[in-house]
Computed example of a mutant assay.
Amino acid sequence: MSDVEPRTEAGDVLTEVIMRTFRLYGGFLEAAEVMTKPVGLTAAWWQVLGAVLRQPLPVSGIAREMSLTRQSVQRIADLLVEKGLAEYLPNPAHKRAKLLRPTAAGYEAVSRLAKAQHAFTNRISAQVDLDDLRTTLKVMERLVEALDADEWPG
């Protein structure tokens, strides 16, 4: 008897979704690097700042939200603080895990991205039906929930 899981059509389709997601991520990352450069950010800095625009979070919370390692977020957070784009605040829930939040300069840098970001997203979204985009978002949210609920056997 084989230990290999049987292939299913749904599994094959999800594999193609994963492969296209890798391609999309690469394209979006490239676009983000182009957009962030003129305002003195990188795509990674923007990603971490974006996670704390609404509320301060500990590095571990940012890492969980973004599916990044805590160590990589910590390096970026420290750089953002060093550059004056973010600051650490005391965390009433945990003495050692400080909260990260943007400074006025961090909010300003992200705000300066808005024009380029909107131009890019408007250009790309104009080529896809709005209902399809909404459906894509719903499916992506369901896939994230499924991933979060999955108990990886390894």
Score class of each variant (00 low, 15 high):
R7S: 15
T8S: 15
A10T: 10
D12E: 15
V13E: 12
T15F: 14
T15L: 15
E16T: 12
V17S: 08
R20Q: 13
F22P: 01
R23G: 05
L24D: 14
Y25L: 10
G27E: 15
G27K: 13
F28G: 10
L29E: 13
E30M: 10
A31R: 11
A31L: 07
A31Y: 05
E33G: 09
E33F: 04
V34T: 13
V34A: 14
M35N: 00
G40F: 03
G40W: 04
A44G: 05
A44I: 01
W45R: 11
W45P: 00
W46R: 05
Q47P: 00
V52Q: 03
L53N: 02
L53K: 09
L57I: 02
P58R: 02
P58E: 14
I62E: 04
R64H: 13
E65T: 08
T69A: 09
T69W: 07
Q71C: 00
Q71I: 00
V73A: 09
Q74V: 00
R75K: 11
I76D: 03
A77Y: 08
L79K: 12
L80D: 04
V81C: 10
K83R: 15
E87W: 02
L89N: 06
N91H: 07
A93C: 06
K95V: 07
R96K: 11
A97T: 03
K98Y: 07
K98M: 09
L99I: 07
L100E: 07
R101T: 09
T103E: 08
T103Y: 10
G106R: 00
G106N: 06
G106K: 02
Y107K: 11
A109P: 01
A109C: 02
V110P: 03
V110Y: 02
S111M: 04
S111Q: 12
S111F: 11
S111P: 00
R112T: 01
L113A: 03
L113N: 07
K115S: 07
K115T: 07
K115R: 08
Q117P: 00
F120Y: 15
R123L: 10
S125E: 08
V128A: 08
D132N: 03
K138P: 01
